[in-house]
């Protein structure tokens, strides 16, 4: 296994820190680097699997439009409801198959709410926990 691929340099740590908005003391950096490298070495085991033809939506393997419309699901009669409890329908949908795609996907799609106002007077709640505020606004350091 090519372990060089999993080495994290200090520059890389700093870069990921910029992405995540985290900073580390010099003394800590080694330990975070080590922790990350350890995990990367560990998860390398997934390379043993041949996953070339496994369909997922994440940008790499995009299911073709014809795949989708041809499939049916046993949960077609499930009703979608909006925030006010009214049944919302999206027309005659062909739903995807059960072994479909990503993350915890439930058996139906097209979960909607209707375009009706249901919130009001949110100012107090919005400002309630703000660390620094001024009048009706939340304050942050000057942005460009």
């Amino acid at each position: 296994m090519d372990n060089n691929y999993n080495r994290i340099s200090k520059e890389m740590l700093d870069y990921v820190g910029i992405l995540s908005k985290l900073e580390f003391e010099e003394s800590e950096k080694e330990s975070y680097i080590k922790g990350m490298e350890e995990m990367l070495d560990y998860v390398d085991i997934l390379n043993e699997l041949d996953t070339d033809t496994v369909p997922v939506d994440g940008g790499v393997y995009v299911r073709s439009q014809t795949d989708i419309t041809a499939e049916k699901s046993e949960y077609q009669n499930v009703q979608n409801k909006d925030l006010l409890g009214n049944v919302v329908s999206a027309g005659d949908v062909n739903t995807g198959s059960q072994t479909d795609i990503t993350a915890g996907k439930s058996e139906y799609q097209n979960v909607f709410r209707e375009d009706t106002v249901s919130n009001e007077n949110g100012q107090e709640a919005a400002l309630y926990n703000a660390p620094v505020k001024k009048g009706e606004y939340i304050v942050v350091p000057k942005t460009i």
């Binding site: 890389m12 990921v16 992405l19 975070y32 997934l46 390379n47 699997l49 996953t51 790499v60 990503t102």
Partner: peptide
């Protein structure tokens, strides 16, 4: 840190997509 790294370009396919496929 790990999560940001795994999603960053260059690693997204090798890790995140790989993991999604493994999950399947």
């Amino acid at each position: 840190m790990l999560g940001s790294f795994l999603l960053s370009s260059g690693y997204y396919d090798a890790y995140y997509i790989k993991a999604l496929k493994t999950r399947e």
